[in-house]
Computed example of a mutant assay.
Amino acid sequence: MNSLQTLNKRMRRTVFNYVKRHLSSEIERQNEIFTNEKSRQRQAVGRIEKISINYEGPQPESNEVLIMNKNISTPFDCARHLGDTVSNMSVVALLNGETLWHMHKPIPDTCKLQFLHYQSPNPVLVNKTFWRSCSFLMGAVVSQAFKDNIKLHLHSFPSPNVKSGSFVYDVQLELEDWKPTASELKVLSLEMIKFCQKELPIEHLDVSKDVAFEIFKENPHKTKQIPDIAENNDDKVTLFRAGTHIDISKGPMIPNTNHMGRITIANVIKLNTDIPDGHIYRFQGVALPRSLILNHFAYGLLEDRAKLLNPARIPGSQVVDNEDNSFVASMTA
C-alpha cells in the first residue's frame, strides 16, 4: 500500500468530513438573512452626504484630507485612495486617536483617521485584533470540519490574550471523549490554512436582536448570549462574516484572511463543565501574520506552549459567556 493510500485510510477513520459538500440549507439561510440585512441598511442611508477624513500618516508629509461618503465609505476605501502599500499593510483603523475601527465598517462622520499595522511601535492593539480574528477563523473551520452525524455548536471564544499562548474557541461536540491524534490536528491546521488562502474579506454588520436571533436560532448558546450582548451594545449585536461563516464578536477583525501566515491548531482539550446536551472542547491554536517571519525552532516553541490548556474562563451553565464576558470593555483597553 502506497503512502497516499495509507493516508486516505487514516483519514477515513477520523471524525472529520473530507468530502466537500454543497452549502447546507442552514448556512444558506443564515447568509441570505445577513446579505439582505446588509443591503437593507445600505439602502436606508438615503441621500449621500460627504464627510472629510483627515488621514494622519506615519510622517507629517503623508497626511491627507479625503472626501468620502458618510455611512458608506470605510477605512479600507480610504486606504485604497492612499495606495496599495497602505491598503495591504493596514490591519485596523484608529478613529480620532481613540476608537479602534474595523477596516470594512462604514465611517459615520468626519474624523481623524490612522492605520495600525504589524510593525506599529505599540503593537498591543494590532496583536489583539489578529488574535481575535484567529479565534473567529478557527470557528469557521471547526464548524465545517466534522461529519454530518456529529452534532456541533460553536459556543464562544474569550477576549484575545496573546500572553496566554494560544487563541481559543470553545465548541460543543457530541463526542464522548475525543482526543485528537497528531494527524487530525495537522489536518485541521491545513484546513484553516486553505480557508485563509481564499483571501476572503471579513465583513462587518451591526444588527438588531431580532435579526441576530433569526440568524442563530439553531444555536442554543448564541441565542442565550444575544440579550446580554445587545443590552451592553446599544441594543445591537455585531456580526462578522468570512466566506459563508457568520459569528458574533465585538471586533474589530483583520480585513482579509490573506493576513494569516503560519497556522497551527495545536490541541483540543475536553473541558469539565456543567453545560447539558453535549461536551465542551477547547480548540487552541497559534498563528503568525503573513508579514512576520519566524524560524522553525522559535515557532516550534510557540506550538508547544499552545498545547497547554489555555487559562481562559471555562464556560458554565450558570453564566452567559461571550467574548470578554461583557460588551462593555473598551475597544482600546
Rank of each mutant, 00 (worst) to 15 (best):
K9N: 07
R290T: 01
I202M: 06
K147L: 15
A44C: 07
N2P: 11
E184L: 12
I48Q: 15
T181C: 00
E214D: 11
L116S: 01
E231P: 00
E37Y: 10
Q114W: 00
R305E: 12
S143G: 05
V19D: 12
R241S: 06
E191G: 02
N310S: 11
D148M: 09
F34M: 08
G285L: 11
K270N: 07
F115L: 02
V142K: 12
N233W: 03
N96F: 05
F130I: 01
A306S: 15
L190W: 10
K194A: 11
G278S: 12
K198H: 07
S291G: 02
L175E: 07
P315S: 13
R132S: 12
N69E: 09
I314Y: 08
Q5F: 05
D277Y: 08
V142E: 13
K222S: 14
R13P: 02
A312Y: 06
Q119R: 07
D234C: 09
I51T: 15
D274G: 14
S156C: 04
L95T: 00
H81A: 10
Y281G: 09
P121Q: 07
T238Q: 12
E49P: 01
Q30T: 12
F157P: 02
E28V: 09
E32G: 12
Q41C: 08
T85M: 07
I314M: 10
L66P: 00
C134T: 09
A79G: 03
P201K: 14
T35Y: 08
V268T: 10
G243P: 00
L152K: 13
K198C: 11
F216E: 03
Q172S: 15
D77W: 06
C196T: 13
R10N: 14
K9I: 06
A230M: 14
P180Q: 03
L125G: 05
S87T: 04
K217I: 01
V320W: 11
L302F: 04
N233Y: 03
N322V: 02
Q144C: 15
K163G: 02
R282M: 08
E61K: 13
N232F: 01
C78E: 03
S39M: 13
N310W: 12
R132E: 04
P311E: 10
F216G: 01
I246D: 06
K147F: 04
T129E: 05
N272W: 06
P180C: 04
K151Q: 11
A79L: 04
C134Q: 10
N322Q: 14
V86H: 01
C111V: 04
C78I: 04
P123G: 04
W101D: 00
L4T: 12
H155S: 13
P311V: 15
R13T: 06
I248H: 03
N8K: 11
I263M: 00
C134M: 15
K20I: 10
M1D: 03
S120C: 03
R80T: 06
R29L: 11
L294F: 03
F327P: 00
M260E: 06
I280Y: 02
N8V: 15
K179D: 06
L288D: 10
T238I: 09
F327K: 05
K179L: 11
K20H: 07
